[in-house]
Each structure stands twice: as structure tokens, then as C-alpha cells.
């Protein structure tokens, strides 16, 4: 059971990540002013959609043999792309980043994604159908990485390949930082949960005494209720 749970988590999270990438690419495709770039991002988004579909299929296959309670936890709902942080609450990356930084981000992260798929490949086995599909996805990621590099060097000729290396190192460190932050957050969460629960219990005890009859509207003209009241 523990094995199924960890596998489900891997496919669930990877599918989220790939779908979020597809949406990020689609967002850039719609933002750009160049038809050529729009085509590039469009095709990239299409690939990412296809990757997400593959991982959702792998998830579904394993979900069938999980207990109902477990399977329910791995049911995909699109808004979780935001709540899980795969898409920022501030908006798509292209809304918060310069195009140059975005391309460097793609350049680095496609490579990082490829290396993380190595682990999944080991999990499913290289010679299986799923293994072949993941190998195909890895080849796609490498192609995207190469395209981002090419695009970067054409459009920003003043920058040299070694500068891309700096971007890569920076992003790799950022990624590691994010993982440490996430792990710390989870640790802190475990540590503080009892405290949160005690606080919620106290607040709940007070809430019990709330009289919500004030909110009743029966017989009232709804258009006359204060426009400024949040109650």
C-alpha cells in the first residue's frame, strides 16, 4: 500500500507539473507579438499537454488498484494547480518575468525535468510501454531545452553560453532552495499543527456563541442592505 501511495504521489505531482507547464507555454503564446514565437510556444504547450496526459494515464492505471480512500486523494481537480503552487497566485510566469528570464527559466527547467524523469523511468522500467513513453518525454524535454538555448542566443546575442550556465546554476540552486523550503514548511506544519488545532478549538468555542440571527433577511428588502457591509 505504501508503494502504491508513493507511486501515485509521483505521477500525480508530475502530471500537475506538466499541465502547469502547458498552461505557462500557452500563456506566453498568447502574449507574444511574434507569429514565429507564438508557433514555437504553441507546439511546446502541445507537447506539455501530451506529457500531462501520459502521466494522468499512468496515475489512473495505478489508482484503480488503490483503496477508495487513497484513490479519492489523487483525484485531479484543475484549481489545485494554483493551490499546490504549480501556477503562482500572482499569475503566469510571463506576467511576472521578463521574456529573457523566462526563456532562461525554460532552458534550465527542461533539463531539470529530464533528470527527474530518470527516476520515474527507473520506477516503471525502461523496457516497459510506460518506460518507452517516458523516454519519449525525456527526448522532448531535451529538445525544448535545446530550442530555448537556440532562441536565447539568437535573440540575446550579447549574452554568451557561459551566461546561460550562470542562469542554470542559479535556477538549480533556486530549485534546491525551494525543496528545502518546502521540506521545512512541511516539518514546521507537522510541528505547529497541534498548536493550530488548539487555536482553532479556542476560536471554535467562541464561534459557538455567535448569534447569526442578525444575518437573517426574511421580510427585508435586499436592495436596502448596506452596500459597504461585509456581514
Amino acid at each position: 500500500m505504501k508503494k502504491i501511495n508513493s507511486e501515485l504521489t509521483i505521477f500525480f505531482e508530475t502530471a500537475h507539473a506538466e499541465l502547469a507547464s502547458a498552461l505557462e507555454m500557452l500563456a506566453v503564446c498568447k502574449e507574444t507579438d511574434s507569429p514565429k514565437q507564438a508557433f514555437g510556444y504553441f507546439m511546446h504547450a502541445k507537447d506539455e499537454y501530451s506529457h500531462a496526459k501520459s502521466f494522468f494515464n499512468m496515475l489512473s492505471l495505478r489508482g484503480k488498484s488503490a483503496s477508495i480512500e487513497t484513490a479519492r486523494d489523487f483525484r485531479f481537480t484543475p484549481p489545485s494547480l494554483i493551490t499546490k503552487g504549480y501556477i503562482s497566485q500572482k499569475g503566469f510566469l510571463i506576467e511576472t518575468m521578463q521574456l529573457k528570464d523566462f526563456i532562461a527559466f525554460v532552458y534550465t527547467n527542461e533539463l531539470l525535468a529530464k533528470s527527474s524523469f530518470e527516476k520515474i523511468l527507473t520506477l516503471v522500467g525502461r523496457s516497459t510501454e510506460e518506460g518507452k513513453r517516458i523516454s519519449g518525454i525525456m527526448a522532448d524535454e531535451l529538445r525544448h531545452h535545446g530550442m530555448a538555448k537556440k532562441h536565447f542566443l539568437i535573440h540575446y546575442p550579447a549574452l554568451q553560453p557561459w551566461q546561460l550556465m550562470i542562469y542554470r546554476t542559479k535556477e538549480t540552486l533556486n530549485n534546491k532552495g525551494r525543496k528545502i523550503y518546502d521540506a521545512n514548511l512541511k516539518f514546521l506544519d507537522r510541528l505547529l499543527t497541534p498548536l493550530y488545532r488548539i487555536m482553532a478549538f479556542l476560536a471554535g468555542t467562541i464561534s459557538k456563541k455567535l448569534n447569526l440571527n442578525e444575518f437573517k433577511r426574511k421580510g427585508k428588502n435586499l436592495m436596502n442592505i448596506s452596500t459597504k457591509s461585509i456581514l
Binding site: F201, G204, T205, S207
Partner: peptide
């Protein structure tokens, strides 16, 4: 408040929701 008030009537079962 309506959600909190209702949940508070069913503590401790609703503690997760309240939290």
C-alpha cells in the same frame, strides 16, 4: 462566519475544517 459557526457546533469532529 456561517461555515465556522456550524463547524464549531460539531467539535472535535470538525476540528480539521475549523483549522
Amino acid at each position: 462566519l456561517h461555515i465556522v459557526k456550524e463547524a464549531s457546533m460539531h467539535m472535535p469532529k470538525s476540528l480539521d475544517l475549523l483549522t
